[in-house]
Every structure is written in structure tokens, then in C-alpha cells.
Design a protein around this nucleic acid. Structure first.
Length: 272
DNA sequence: CAAGACTCCTGTCAGC
DNA sequence: TGCTGACAGGAGTCTT
């Protein structure tokens, strides 16, 4: 389940494979993703040269001379490069062929992801324009978090952190992990979190994401393999998915709570 | 506007 | 062993 670190890992992994190369063919095997793949994608992409690869939130932005491909990996999506003669896999939905023979494949079993094309500024695209700050930027500060949190009278801090208007790229796993690191109970109301605690939370979110990116970076070489999914879950998780297991800090069992339709894992002793 | 429920989809796993 | 149902989750829409 690609969260921001995984998308950044994907970006770094495929950048050297396609940057500066020209699209010579596009195959869409299944256009019914979260939003349908444009039926004229091949016409739009062919002859276009990849200028750069960028990321905004969990969106991968492939800038071409003619426009930008906006890719979201959803829950189960990944990109890999196909070796010559290699078999296609189930759920290989879209393929981009480049002039040097490189083939980039989009695979997404659950089809929560999508591939969009825009000729305008991708950051002003309707999917991106209302997003909050990047978690690793200076805009994501304790003051920012505290200011927004004070207006939210009933939502708990954990679903608040997962709100993309507050900060992008913090999914269920990293929200749980960051709140553990910050020592904050995920059930507490956002409006009751102090500025000092916001500072702890910001630092924790950034540390968790940076660690995950670093862990993903170690597996970038796998991109050339057909099995080359990037290093999801390489990181040591302290609370996520560990209900009943002892807390790594105090030894008391990790507990689980439902917050905003999502499972939240935490230590009732270390997180107050 | 805020907040919660519901939705998309399929692989995985528990329970029978 | 095979079937069934619950569950997972990002992010959008719908309802309250």
C-alpha cells in the first residue's frame, strides 16, 4: 500500500529508466481504473519525451514535452520495467514503451489508482489544487498544525493527521507510527492538542517518513526485476498491525481502536 | 463548513 | 479442502 515514501521510492526508481526518453507506444489493457484512462492516451503520449519526474503528495507526475501524466498508485498499484520477452502479469493495465526499448508497466490489482493526462500546470489540476502542504516542507510546522487543529472540535488527532488538507502523504500506517513516536493518544480531539505536542507530532511525522524513504531507497535496484516492487514495509513498525503484542518501549500490549473507519494501533501507556 | 458513512476493488485470511 | 464473509485501505462523493 503505497504511501508517500513508497511513491518517492518509485519516483527515484523509474526516473533513471525513462528520463530523456521518448514514448513510442502505449497499450491500455484495462482502462477502468479509479477514473477511466483516456482513450486517446496513446495519441497524446506518443512522440513525447520525458522531461522530469516529480511527486506531489502521493501523486507521481511524469512531465513530458507535451504535458504531464499524473499517476496515483491507489492501494495496490506499482510500476515496474519489463524485460524483453517477459510475461505479462495479471492486472498489468497500462504499458508505456520508450525509444530505447524500455517498457514501463502499471499494475494495480484493486484498481484504486488512476492515470490522468493534463496539458496544464499539474499542480493546478483539480486533484492536486486543494492539497495541503508537503510533510517534509517548512510549511508543515507546529504552528500550521496547531492553527488548523484548534478549529476541529470533534475529530480525533489521528484522522485529522490523515486529512490531506492538513498535510499530505500521511496514511493510516504512518499516522499510527508517528503518534506513537510523539507519545500522543490517537483518540484525543485535535482541538485539545497543545502547540508543544504539535511540535512533537510534526517532528515524528517527518522522522517516520524520512526513515521510510531511506529504507525504500535501499531497494531501488529491484526496479529492474519483474518482481521488483519497491521496499514497502521495510521499515520496523512499532504499533501498526501489532495489537496484542508488547509495546517496544514499555512492554504493555498494543491496543486497537476504530477512528474514522480506520484501525488505529497505539500503546495506552506510552501515548497520552 | 464539519464530520461521518459509504463507495470503488480484489487479495488474503479466519472460520466453518 | 472449499466456500463464505470480513477486512484492508486512499480518497472521492453523499448524507446528516
Amino acid at each position: 500500500m503505497p504511501e508517500l515514501p513508497e511513491v518517492e521510492t518509485v519516483r527515484r526508481g523509474i526516473e533513471p529508466l525513462i528520463c530523456g526518453k521518448t514514448v513510442t507506444g502505449v497499450t491500455v489493457r484495462n482502462a477502468s481504473l479509479r477514473w477511466p484512462v483516456a482513450n486517446d492516451l496513446e495519441q497524446r503520449l506518443c512522440g513525447g519525451k520525458v522531461v522530469s519526474l516529480n511527486r506531489r503528495s502521493k501523486y507521481l507526475l511524469i512531465d513530458f514535452t507535451k504535458g504531464t501524466l499524473i499517476i496515483h498508485l491507489g492501494m495496490s498499484g506499482y510500476l515496474r520495467s519489463l524485460q524483453q520477452g517477459e510475461e505479462r502479469l495479471k492486472h498489468d493495465h497500462v504499458e508505456l514503451c520508450f525509444d530505447d526499448g524500455t517498457v514501463l508497466v502499471y499494475n494495480d490489482a484493486r484498481r484504486f489508482g488512476f492515470i490522468l493526462w493534463t496539458t496544464d500546470d499539474p499542480l493546478r489540476h483539480e486533484r492536486l489544487v486543494n492539497l495541503g502542504p508537503e510533510p517534509l516542507s517548512d510549511v508543515f510546522s507546529a504552528a500550521h498544525l496547531h492553527r488548523l487543529a484548534q478549529r476541529r472540535k470533534s475529530v480525533a488527532i489521528k484522522p485529522f493527521l490523515m486529512d490531506s488538507k492538513v498535510v499530505v502523504g500521511v496514511g493510516n500506517i504512518y499516522a499510527s507510527e508517528a503518534l506513537f513516536m510523539a507519545g500522543v493518544d490517537p483518540r484525543r480531539k485535535a482541538c485539545c492538542i497543545t502547540l508543544d505536542e504539535c511540535q512533537q507530532i510534526v517532528a515524528a511525522v517527518q522522522a517516520v517518513l524520512k526513515d521510510a524513504i531511506a529504507a525504500g531507497g535501499t531497494t531501488i535496484c529491484d526496479f529492474k526485476n519483474s518482481s521488483g516492487k519497491p521496499g514497502y514495509f521495510q521499515q520496523q513498525l512499532h504499533v501498526y498491525g501489532r495489537d496484542g503484542e508488547p509495546c517496544s518501549r514499555c512492554g504493555k500490549p498494543i491496543v486497537i481502536a476504530r477512528l474514522g473507519q480506520r484501525s488505529s494501533y497505539f500503546c495506552g501507556n506510552c501515548q497520552r
